[in-house]
Nucleic acid binder design. Structure first.
Lengths: 333, 333
DNA sequence: GTCTCACATTACATCGTTGTAATAGGGAGG
DNA sequence: CCTCCCTATTACAACGATGTAATGTGAGAC
């Protein structure tokens, strides 16, 4: 049986409340008493029961992190940052997978407190404005990403501008037939739309006519799906001069397809991704990408979340994270 | 304020216990009463307080998952499988990162219950036999991996045999100078030792003399570390005929280094990894690797864990997961 | 020696849920 | 019409920790 405050108190010859006071350090405890209690705790290998504490305090010390697809390297890097930052602040992280299912996203968002968590960091894909009614009190939630949602706090990268800049960078050496991979992700995701819009804006700036046949769709944003989509595309279309994939994961799948067909990157076609995941840096050839500080995302998300949990941070707050275009071998002219 | 059973009970005109009975479905409740209660729950948007339930039942419905490095694709894939399997069984997953720190591994293992979790799935790196005294009651714990630990349940792949078979496969076309990458991971990890031993056993079977200069060490099992280690190695040593990396992540780093130096894979050197992560399948060239069913690992780990949580599963139980050698382009003769 | 005052410590109630044991209600059987 | 019994429902306590308010203890001042 596990020791409780009661057991520790009995052993130390004090009341349970004193034991509690020693742990929490808010109410002062005299030196000798504190020592006796601490020794008793050590002897009994006392560990507080967080369920009881959570019940009493209304706080569990756990936050939720919900991502669309846990298997991707991007998710892994985000999860790592969040876990580490949360840990520094004394929080544990409960992890959830939404599978890009709007029902699940909505459920997690509105029911957050159900799951024994004090707040939620959610990377939504399809969550719509309409999904959450105005006026309904939201639990503490911070969204990650580009979704438009006027109620919850949000940390994001300007996907439109980043995609535009990447397109411009790909075009710089005179490339004009620039394709994108990743439009039409089942239901259109906010991310896909913004990146596609940024791409189109760049074309316009460059005076390049839009060509629908350069928009390559991809059902799921995975290497496998990207590899297949690109292969099918190349069977029916001429090789573009550049390929901008909306995630590094898709770019990795694309590089494999190109390599299998003997297409040389970057000489025959330049390739770029988005996210700057570790495996992209070590892709062959190493991948040009949109880079941003994932630790900063985690830090900002945790800051917004803790502020909202602790008091009344009013209104929606938006934090934009800087991005940079990192040119690597996959697009060297 | 959030609704409680009391509120629901008042609204439905019944006692709190009846509401509880409706939810848990163990004690029978008459049709009309059940309906009234269900309607009241819906109207109040009632969500049970899991802290209170956890306190009362001694169960939180949360399990812990502790991995050495959350940023790796391998961790991501394992985490995904565990989360999905756990979810099917009604558990949530709290995720932890050990950073391969033995203190943290030990702390998580012995203090499991502290963290509001019912059990722990731990992928240890350096955990030693001595770290946990015999006789001390362990909380429900399942270890993942090759570590030798005689007390806790464990799910593992036979790394020795897999490394041996992979080495034999690499040698089949007559390759004799086979290097390994990943020995000496700071403190030697059980995984590194077993894979190195398997490699050595294969050399012996093949009648190839061991050559210490073919053991390439690598501080951390990441692409970055592997890329650097291999580059330094190649500066000082001739090119081996084959390179067996102890993880796919390291292999991805190695492929990048080889490509940068204009070394052609597999013509100049064959490369293989271990883990069969998604990005390895789409590496350039696609990566030969040791494959195993990560979903099976998750399923077995959850089975062992739930059995141990629910009653007295006596003694240590070991579950071995099958592996296969998957030859892809990186080692085609 | 008595009275204050400040401070350490304690008793009690409470958080929300659920097992236990007791109660109420209703129908069947005599 | 009364008893008995079975079932649905209820009252109460308990899980473990902690805020509140009350109590106890000592030193210091007169």
């Amino acid at each position: 049986m596990r020791a409780t405050v009661k057991d520790v108190a009995r052993r130390a010859g004090v009341s349970p409340k004193t034991v509690s006071n020693v742990m929490n350090g808010i109410v002062p405890v005299s030196g000798p008493t504190r020592l006796r209690v601490e020794q008793a705790m050590a002897e009994l290998d006392y560990v507080p029961n967080l369920s009881a504490r959570g019940l009493r305090n209304g706080r569990s010390g756990v936050i939720g992190l919900a991502l669309p697809d846990l298997a991707t390297p991007f998710s892994a890097e985000i999860a790592q940052s969040i876990v580490e930052v949360a840990h520094e602040q004394g929080f544990s992280v409960q992890i959830e997978e939404t599978g890009s299912d709007p029902h699940r996203e909505h459920e997690l968002m509105t029911r957050a407190r159900a799951n024994l968590i004090d707040g939620l960091i959610l990377n939504p894909v399809v969550l719509k404005e309409s999904a959450v009614q105005v006026g309904v009190a939201l639990p503490p939630v911070v969204l990650l990403g580009e979704v438009t949602q006027r109620l919850a706090d949000r940390v994001f990268v300007d996907s439109f501008a980043a995609a535009r800049d990447m397109t411009l960078a790909l075009a710089r050496p005179g490339r004009r037939r620039i394709a994108v991979l990743g439009v039409n992700r089942g239901r259109q995701s906010a991310t896909a739309i913004q990146r596609a819009d940024g791409y189109k804006a760049a074309l316009q700036m460059l005076g390049i006519a839009q060509d629908e046949s350069l928009l390559i769709s991809c059902d799921s944003w995975t290497p496998a799906s990207a590899a297949v989509s690109l292969a099918e595309y190349l069977d029916a279309n001429p090789l573009p001069e550049a390929l901008f994939c909306f995630t590094d994961s898709m770019a990795i799948g694309a590089l494999n397809t190109l390599w299998k067909r003997g297409v040389h990157v970057p000489d025959d076609i330049a390739v770029a991704g988005f996210d700057d995941v570790i495996d992209g840096r070590f892709a062959v050839p190493s991948l040009t990408t949109v880079s941003f500080d994932k630790r900063a995302i985690a830090t900002e998300a945790m800051r917004l979340l803790t502020e909202r949990m602790s008091d009344r941070a009013h209104g929606q707050r938006l934090v934009e994270i800087e991005y940079t275009i990192v040119e690597r071998d996959s697009s060297r002219a």
